[in-house]
Design a protein around this nucleic acid. Sequence first.
DNA 1: TTTTTAGTTCTTTTATTGCAGAACTATAAA
DNA 2: TTTATAGTTCTGCAATAAAAGAACTAAAAA
Lengths: 157, 157
Amino acid sequence: MAQHNERSGFIEEVGLLFEGLGVTRMAGRIMGYLMVSDKEMVSFDELTQVLQASKSSISTNLKSLVHLKFIKPISVPGDRKTYYMLNPDLNWETYFETRFELLKRMLMLFKKGIDLRVNKKDKPATWINEAINFYEWISLEYPKLLKKYRERNNNPA
Amino acid sequence: MAQHNERSGFIEEVGLLFEGLGVTRMAGRIMGYLMVSDKEMVSFDELTQVLQASKSSISTNLKSLVHLKFIKPISVPGDRKTYYMLNPDLNWETYFETRFELLKRMLMLFKKGIDLRVNKKDKPATWINEAINFYEWISLEYPKLLKKYRERNNNPA
DNA sequence: TTTTTAGTTCTTTTATTGCAGAACTATAAA
DNA sequence: TTTATAGTTCTGCAATAAAAGAACTAAAAA
């Protein structure tokens, strides 16, 4: 990192945390920099310099962050540069809804597991049924939870 | 796979799904086999054979599944073999609570981000504050949700 | 039209990780 | 005590993926 201060530490932390979230460490660093930069939007070139990374890596990772709707590209007429900012339209509920897909897949799989068993009352069957019980419940409650948040925020007190 | 039937397909599916959950594909296959096997418990050796995998891979993955409390080793006196079964004591609420840790880490990080900003009212600050708003809310609701499930199941109707 | 700027895309390098094979350990059986 | 069984751990290999480097494209500026 070019500058060694609290911010570069923060940027690395975001990098590591986002890495565990499925994007690359570099994508996380970009998010981190956008969060602590004093500018509202940051150019491609600035990112390569401050993150000491290659253009190719920055390019690829910016694309993926745009695709995930984490950031938003800004183009200004008469300026060939593209700027990027944290996407104000990102809503976290929607992001969390993608997690819901995984829950449903898990549920489907457990049900298929039961179907494939000869004995549907023994210990493994009981284990699977308990999983089904939980996943069925959470698959029902999870969207409710997000809906509740959405309502609270769209109809503020 | 030794036998080509619906079950081996299922086992592969579990492998892929669990892979996305942070364990290895092989660990997922073991889970899959334990789910569709007609036996209540399965030996180390049986796993190497039915999954056509090396002893080392099976050994390592069994250890990790035991550590994650997904499975339980069973030893029988007078029998040197160790058997494994789906852990009846696994409770999914507890498993999901580990997800909660990540939520808290995200929240902490966003708060740190705000602290590091000079301007705490501009667009990036607003973006972070919205994230904080969401994560603060879900960090509060998430444990409630799991508690509700626990109560429903410990006090069955 | 030529040159510079800005960024993309393709190829190569490097690091990580899962798995196999083999050597090793412990324990029960012969 | 020796041998066979059951499983662990260490080493090496193969596959994957992130990032760098370099070649390429598009468009504005000179």
